[in-house]
Amino acid sequence: MAETAAAQKNAQITRTAHSQGEEPASARPLVELDHVEKWYGELHVLRDINLKVSKGEVVVVLGPSGSGKSTMCRTINRLERIDSGVILIDGHPLPQEGRELTRLRQKVGMVFQSYNLFAHRTILDNVTLAPRKVLHRPKAEAEKEARELLSRVGVEAQAAKYPAQLSGGQQQRVAIARALAMHPDVLLFDEPTSALDPEMVGEVLNVMTDLAREGMTMICVTHEMGFARQVADRIVFMADGQILETGTPEQFFEHPQTDRAKDFLSKILNH
């Protein structure tokens, strides 16, 4: 899918910023998946997934449809259970249920393909609700920060409207602001631009690129190859529930190792 010129430019700036940036402060990975397995009945949807994501790292997950990208993403904040293995967030194992899970989930923000803004609440409420009700922050303070976040993603003028009154691109940017309002340690993106009209893809990718540049730790499932190439620190390639390759964008796009990856790239890049 075509990317806007602005996104390309931003992505280039990001790249420079990354190459000049220092090494992650802590050696401990922020997110760690260790021998994770998951079945949907007979279907072995995640097979021995091992992945470490450091603070400030941008990981882009690529792979054909049905390869388990969404499922992996969703296990990281336990929207899906795993059958064996461990998932650690900042060194703490993700619990099965209860308060501890709720607390760890706050550290892992998620942006969905279908935005999932709360349809019965205004844009401002969408962003303030979780800080107020989960973090118990005073309303005025939460609203002040929400307005800052909304202006950061360029939708401050829409604060009083309802989600259905916004374009898809605007809704997705609000969804990003809503996730940021919880000050997550890591943001998960599951195909954040796939539901958008082509002319709105760029505005969302721009926001994501800015976040990456500011040092946000991100795990992005996407089919936007321009973004993957220019913003990712690392590409993770999945097929049939397995991680087949992981490497820098350059390594992956220029020198794919497996036949599945070569096949995937030829289909993506030649259509």
Binding site: R105, N116, K133, A179
Partner: peptide
Amino acid sequence: VPIGQAEAARSLGFGFFQSAFLIILPQ
């Protein structure tokens, strides 16, 4: 109410009752 509403609520750290009373039941 689309399932995504509950998932978004959970991913923001809402517990069962908060999701139910703030997000799901009002809709």
